[in-house]
Design a protein around this nucleic acid. Sequence first.
DNA 1: ACAATAATATGAGATATCTCATATTTTGCA
DNA 2: TGCAAAATATGAGATATCTCATATTATTGT
Lengths: 218, 218
Amino acid sequence: MYRLQKSEYIQHFPINKYFSYNVESYVEVFEYKVGDWIIEEGMNSNYLFYIHTGKAKVFVTHQNGKMALINIVGAGEFLGDMELLHEQYYSKAVQAISTMIVFAIPFKPCREPLLEDAKFLKQLAIYISEKATDMTAKYSQRLAFPLENRLAEFILQTAVDDIYREKHVLVCDYLGVSYRHLLFTLAQFCEEDILAKDGRNYRIRNKSRLIGLSEILK
Amino acid sequence: MYRLQKSEYIQHFPINKYFSYNVESYVEVFEYKVGDWIIEEGMNSNYLFYIHTGKAKVFVTHQNGKMALINIVGAGEFLGDMELLHEQYYSKAVQAISTMIVFAIPFKPCREPLLEDAKFLKQLAIYISEKATDMTAKYSQRLAFPLENRLAEFILQTAVDDIYREKHVLVCDYLGVSYRHLLFTLAQFCEEDILAKDGRNYRIRNKSRLIGLSEILK
DNA sequence: ACAATAATATGAGATATCTCATATTTTGCA
DNA sequence: TGCAAAATATGAGATATCTCATATTATTGT
C-alpha cells in the first residue's frame, strides 16, 4: 500500500454529495497493487473507503476454514460502510484485483461526526439501497442464464492482463455451480477458442466473444 | 383500510430505537384485510410504513404491462423507505396477503425532519443493509436447491387459510423457473398428497411436509 | 353474446447441471 | 524430503429444468 498526494485526486471525490461537514482534511489517498489486501478479515477496519479506481474481491471465511468469494466491487463503491454502521462487525476480507486508488476516511477522528451527519447518512442509505436493488436485479436475472454467460462476465472481471487464474473451487462456489460443470464450461470455451489453456492458467483469445456472452446478462 | 386507535399498538412501535425526535404524535395505525392495496404502483406514497402484523406482496409492472411479484415482506419491515429517500421514486405496488396492522408516518409533516434525523437515518441504513445481506444470502443459497424447496416455502408464505391460489405465470416468474416446470412440481406435490387440487386452487394437506421442505433452505 | 386474450394443462424431447467415481498433479508442512 | 491434503482433471449416468407444440378452459372488452 502506498500513500499518494491527495491534491491531484481529491477533486474526484464527491465530497459535496456525501458530507455536510469538512471531511476533506482527514481524507487520505491510498494506492494498492494487484493482490494487496485492503481489508483483512475480522480485523477492525480503521477506514471508510471510497473506490476511485480499480476493482477488488470480497471474501469471507466459513466455519470450515474455507474462503469463499462473495462479491466483486469497483469504482464508486464504498468499503467499510458496514463496519461504520455496526459497532462490532466481522469484516470481510478485500483484495485488489487491479491497481486501486481509494479515498480513506479514518474512523478515529471521523466516525462520530459521520454518524451524526444527516447528509452523509442519507446518501449512505441511498447508496446501500441502490446497491441492494442492483444485487437483487443481478441475482434474479442471473438465474435465467446458463453458466456460460455468467462465467464469461466473471472471467472478464477477474482476469489480469488477459490471463485468468482463479481457483476453480472458489469460482464454482461463487457462481453456484458444480466443480464438474465449471470445468466442463471452461473446456468448452477452449474448444471454441475463446480461451487457451496455458498450464494452469487460461489466456483470453477472443475477448469480444466473452463480452458478447456477458452482455446478455444486461 | 381501517384506522385503528393507536393507544393499544403504539407501545409495540420501536420509537426509541428509530427516532430521536417525537414522531409519536404523528403516527397513525392502519389495518388492512387480505387483498387490500397498501401502496398503489407509481403513486406518490404518502407514508412511511412499519409493519406491525401480517405480510404483503410487492409487485412491479413491466413495460409490457405484465405484473411481476418481486418480494414478500412481513412484520418488522418498512414500506415506503425508498420513496422517502429518493425524491421521485416509482413506487412498487404492495398488497396484503393476510390481515395487516401497520404504523404509518405521514410524509407531509414528517419527511423533512426524518431526513434530518441522524438517529433515524443511521437505523434506516442499518435496516437496509441488513435486509440486503439477508436477500443476498437468500438468493445465493436458493440457487443450490431444486424448485421443490423454494415452492414449498412460497406456498406457505402465500396460502390463505391453507388454500393456495396464486397465478402460475406470476409464480414461475418470481421463482425463476419455467411455467412447465412449476406445473410439474405442483403435480408432484399432489401426487405425494402434500397438496390437493380443488378446482383452480390447491389445498394444503400436509403442512408439516411443506415446512420440512422449506426449512432445508435455512 | 362473442371473439380475443389470458390462464391452465399436458406431452415429449432437449439440455444444463449434478453426483459419484477415480486418477493425476500440486502444495503445504512436519 | 516426503506424506497428506488440496487442487486439477475426466468419464458416465442421473435429474432438474427448459423449449416447443398443442388443447382446453376462463376472462375480458365491445
